[in-house]
């Protein structure tokens, strides 16, 4: 990775940890992260490494991932650290967790919808059974302090159009009749497992339901709207809006994401369920225009003309519970998130 890209990550981490004492519960502790080499995992590792380097936290990290070689190749600055160790296997095969682990962030499970459609059974297996496996192994830990289960905002199913932001109290679910619901259903099952293990084994668990993110470490070729817009723009445009341009999405910058996850890990009360994302919904047209504005030149935005009724969807979280319970806020606007992402990609 380009040293300038690393500098950007460190600057973001410095902003997260203006008050590192808030995370002091992690000092000299051992943290296990499943899905430790993905987008979310990579940011969490960068953040904890920063706490160790800049604030002497002495936190030990164990990453569970299927492909450590790729991590070694893409993030050699992290792979070679002595405070990070690896367990190379699928969470489904995780029998034992190192005995000194006291904090777990269970972030395994690809959000890539290409995998959800083409291999739904594997997705269900790795998410649902993987979650049960992690929970089962955690029952044998003598000093477990908390597990953060990273679920998904998709567990709500289709967000009603008249509901601008979906709160945690909204009870609904994905359409089980369609194959593309496999990921959401598996995440829902994962949440149920967490509730059962919390009730039956008294394991302290909090659940986060992430929505959409944009920032460094996110693979720009992923088939999501904002990624496509940025990819189109970087390649000289035009920016193509696929589908209904009035579809509403919100995006959180990863430094805010990390701040929220670690705060919930340290301070979240067992049983808590919180949304994780930005409450500022924008239409795809607004997002595309924003991306356009961040690229010098004459990039244009092209909307499709589909001869049919508009069919926009909404996927935006209500975060008032996170604000009330833990005082969590967003510090990076979408405009800045897009600018920073483009800058980071151009450095690569």
């Amino acid at each position: 990775m380009n040293p300038k890209q690393l500098e950007m990550i460190k600057e973001d981490c410095s902003r997260i940890f203006r008050d590192p004492d808030r995370f002091s519960a992690l000092k000299n502790e051992s943290v296990l992260i499943t899905g430790g080499t993905g987008f979310m995992g990579s940011w969490l590792v960068e953040a904890i490494a920063y706490l160790n380097d800049q604030h002497g936290f002495g936190t030990k990290l164990t990453l569970v991932a299927r492909d450590i070689d790729r991590f070694n190749q893409n993030q050699p600055h992290l792979a070679s650290r002595s405070d990070i160790s690896f367990i190379e296997k699928s969470v489904r095969d995780l029998i034992d967790i190192p005995g000194d682990v006291s904090w777990i962030i269970h972030a395994a499970g690809t959000p890539d919808n290409r995998a959800h459609s083409s291999n739904p059974l594997d997705v269900i297996d790795s998410i649902a059974n993987g979650t049960m496996q992690v929970l089962d192994a955690s029952t044998r830990l003598s000093n477990l302090k908390k597990i953060v289960n990273i679920s998904s905002g998709w567990v709500y199913g289709a967000q009603p159009k008249e509901m601008p932001r979906v709160p945690e109290s909204y009870i609904s679910g994905p359409d089980s009749a369609v194959i593309t619901s496999a990921y959401a259903e598996a995440k829902r099952m994962g949440e149920t497992f967490c509730s059962v293990y919390k009730g039956q084994f008294r394991i302290p668990i909090v659940t986060l339901r992430p929505f959409a993110f944009i920032g460094p470490y996110q693979l720009i070729e992923k088939p999501w709207a904002i990624n496509n817009f940025i990819n189109d723009a970087i390649n000289g445009g035009p920016i193509n809006i696929l589908g209904d341009e009035s579809t509403i999405r919100s995006y959180m910058y990863p430094s805010d994401m990390v701040n929220w996850i670690l705060t919930v890990l340290c301070e979240g009360e067992s049983g808590l369920v919180l949304n994780l994302g930005s409450p500022e919904g924008c239409t795809l047209r607004e997002v595309a225009d924003m991306v356009c504005g961040c690229i010098p030149g004459e990039t244009v935005v092209i909307s499709q003309t589909l001869n049919r009724k508009p069919k926009h969807s909404v996927f935006v979280p209500d975060i008032s519970k996170a604000q009330e319970k833990l005082g969590l806020e967003l510090s990076v606007s979408l405009q800045d998130a897009i600018k920073k992402t483009i800058e980071w990609l151009k450095l690569g």
Binding site: R114, S117, I179, T180, P223, L242
Partner: peptide
Amino acid sequence: VEEAMKMESYGAE
């Protein structure tokens, strides 16, 4: 419909 949804999810325009 199901197969078309898969193609859309892969990125088909």
